[in-house]
């Protein structure tokens, strides 16, 4: 009995591949209007239809090899990246993996309807087997989408964390030879490393003689943060730049003293403006208020 059963399943899979090839256009048109594709390919509907066709092609290839339940079937390889991008786009709009899976399930409904219309007048065993095969295959597609959704989500989080690291440490050129890094948020070891690297790089690129580290936006300065600051100052000094730490608030200054941290090797100024004035005066640049009436206009 094994052999004919296997043959039945195979012929159902081939029947399904046949159906998908034949109805490629209609299926793509229907899917293109579903939320999964429509909301991702917003610029042109043709683009959505093309993307849908690629998915239909992948499905019919998987069906023709008979591996309906295999998430790893080679046929999916072609569209995996595209599905991943779609999932990432949905996830980026705040959709949960479960919601995206629901949208993927919606694809099955459209395909089943199309197949039903076709086989309405001949409800035989073969039609039933093809329908079953379609259901199985669409379930597998849903799993593939789920899989890409989860990995896209993880990637998104990792990327956002990295972006946060980068965005939060801009190096600003204040004057020729004077750069500043306004530090905002928690200075853990990873952040400190990024800060030090971007600061040293900017010192080289901009030939900075003075680098201002403004810590107004750093909520806590404990022994580790202080140590990172001192290391950064020492490294900048080796590069030929003098560091000024500004923005130490009164509560933080008192806390640093009680902790017992010796910041005497670090040049400090209370505000970024003071630090800039210091750096300018050291370069022989004097900033003074223009006397009233001296404006030549």
């Amino acid at each position: 009995m094994q052999v004919p059963e296997q043959a039945g399943a195979d012929s159902a899979a081939h029947g399904l591949a046949d159906f998908l090839e034949r109805r490629r256009e209609q299926l793509a048109q229907r899917w293109a209007d579903g939320p999964l594709f429509r909301t991702v390919f917003t610029v042109s509907r043709d683009e959505a239809v093309e993307a849908c066709k690629a998915v239909v092609d992948a499905l019919s290839e998987v069906a023709s090899t008979g591996r309906l339940e295999s998430v790893g079937a080679p046929g999916f390889g072609e569209v995996r990246e595209q599905l991943g991008r779609m999932a990432a786009s949905r996830a980026g709009r705040g959709f949960t993996p479960a919601q995206i899976a629901d949208e993927a399930a919606g694809l099955r409904t459209a395909a089943v309807e199309l197949l039903r219309d076709e086989t309405e007048d001949r409800p035989d065993d073969e039609a039933r087997d093809v329908l079953l095969a379609l259901t199985v295959l669409m379930g597998t597609l849903r799993l593939v989408i789920m899989e890409t959704t989860v990995s896209a989500g993880e990637e998104l989080i990792a990327r956002q964390q990295l972006q946060l690291l980068e965005v939060a440490t801009p190096v600003i050129s204040l004057w020729e030879g004077v750069i500043a890094v306004p530090l905002i948020g928690t200075l853990d070891s990873a952040r400190s490393q990024v800060v030090m690297e971007s600061l040293l790089q900017a010192i080289v690129e901009q030939r900075a003689r003075y680098a201002i580290l403004d810590i107004t936006g750093v909520p806590t300065v404990d022994s580790l943060v202080a140590q990172h600051l001192m290391k950064t100052v020492a490294a900048a000094r080796l590069m030929g730049a003098e560091c000024v730490v500004s923005g130490i608030r009164p509560a933080i200054a008192q806390t640093i003293v009680h902790l017992g941290i010796d910041l005497s090797s670090v040049l400090t100024r209370s505000s970024l403006a003071d630090a800039l004035a210091y750096a300018l005066s050291r370069q022989g640049i004097e900033v003074s208020q223009r006397a009233a009436g001296a404006n030549p206009r």
């Binding site: 909520p219 806590t220 300065v221 404990d222 009164p250 509560a251 933080i252 008192q254 806390t255 009680h258 902790l259």
Partner: peptide
């Protein structure tokens, strides 16, 4: 107060 908060958090 703010100073004490900062000390405790540190």
């Amino acid at each position: 107060g703010l100073v004490q908060q900062t000390k405790i958090v540190t």
